[in-house]
Amino acid sequence: MARAATTTDAFNAVAEPRRRQILDVLAGGERPVNDLVTLLGLAQSQVSKHLKVLREVGLVDVRDEGRQRMYRLNGHALKPIHDWVKQYERSWNDRFDALDVVLEELTGKEQGDGGSDE
């Protein structure tokens, strides 16, 4: 089966590290493209290309404010990714709980040694 085009699938869109960086910045609030260019240290053409993909999949919304275009995160569009990751949450929690037990046992053994060589 062919892979979905990046521009039609949120999973593929966020697979690109630079796009995730843009989303991370926009999670802090709305920003103009020039702010993104400065914060990410990328050329404006690169940022614009990534923003276009993010807009096309609905992860980013844009509005005009005077001469600037303001970009903001559309958290609702991240829900399919959240729902998919949530499937693994129970497994992660079970593993962390098991790790806690092991760490408590190790800590108990270290404290029980007493450090004495008698």
Rank of each mutant, 00 (worst) to 15 (best):
A2P: 15
R3S: 15
A5V: 15
A5S: 15
T6P: 06
T6F: 11
T7H: 15
T7A: 14
T8L: 12
T8P: 08
D9S: 15
D9N: 15
A10G: 14
F11L: 15
F11Y: 15
N12E: 15
A15R: 12
A15Y: 11
P17H: 13
P17L: 14
P17F: 13
R19A: 01
R20S: 02
R20I: 08
I22A: 01
L23D: 04
L23Y: 04
D24H: 05
V25R: 07
V25G: 00
L26P: 08
A27V: 04
G29Q: 04
E30L: 02
P32Q: 05
P32G: 00
V33C: 09
N34P: 01
D35V: 03
L36I: 03
L36A: 01
L36N: 00
V37H: 00
L39F: 02
L40I: 02
G41H: 06
L42G: 00
A43P: 04
A43S: 10
Q44C: 02
Q44S: 08
S45G: 04
S45Y: 09
Q46W: 03
V47R: 01
S48V: 10
S48T: 12
K49S: 06
K49M: 04
V53C: 00
L54T: 12
R55N: 07
E56F: 08
E56Q: 14
V57N: 01
V57I: 13
L59T: 05
V62C: 01
V62Q: 03
V62W: 00
D64L: 07
E65H: 05
R67Y: 06
R67L: 01
R69S: 08
M70A: 00
M70C: 04
M70K: 07
Y71T: 03
R72N: 00
R72I: 05
L73M: 08
N74W: 03
H76N: 08
A77L: 09
A77T: 14
A77W: 10
K79H: 06
K79L: 07
K79N: 01
P80E: 03
P80C: 05
W84H: 10
W84Y: 11
V85S: 06
K86A: 10
Q87K: 13
Y88W: 14
E89R: 11
E89K: 13
E89S: 08
R90Q: 13
R90L: 13
R90C: 02
S91F: 07
W92K: 06
N93A: 15
F96M: 13
A98W: 04
D100C: 11
V101A: 10
V101C: 02
V101H: 05
V102D: 08
L103T: 13
L103W: 12
L103D: 13
E104P: 03
E104V: 13
E104T: 14
E104Y: 07
E104G: 02
E105G: 00
E105K: 09
L106V: 09
L106S: 03
T107V: 13
K109S: 12
K109E: 12
E110N: 09
E110W: 12
G112W: 02
G112L: 06
G112Q: 11
G114R: 08
G115E: 14
D117V: 11
D117A: 12
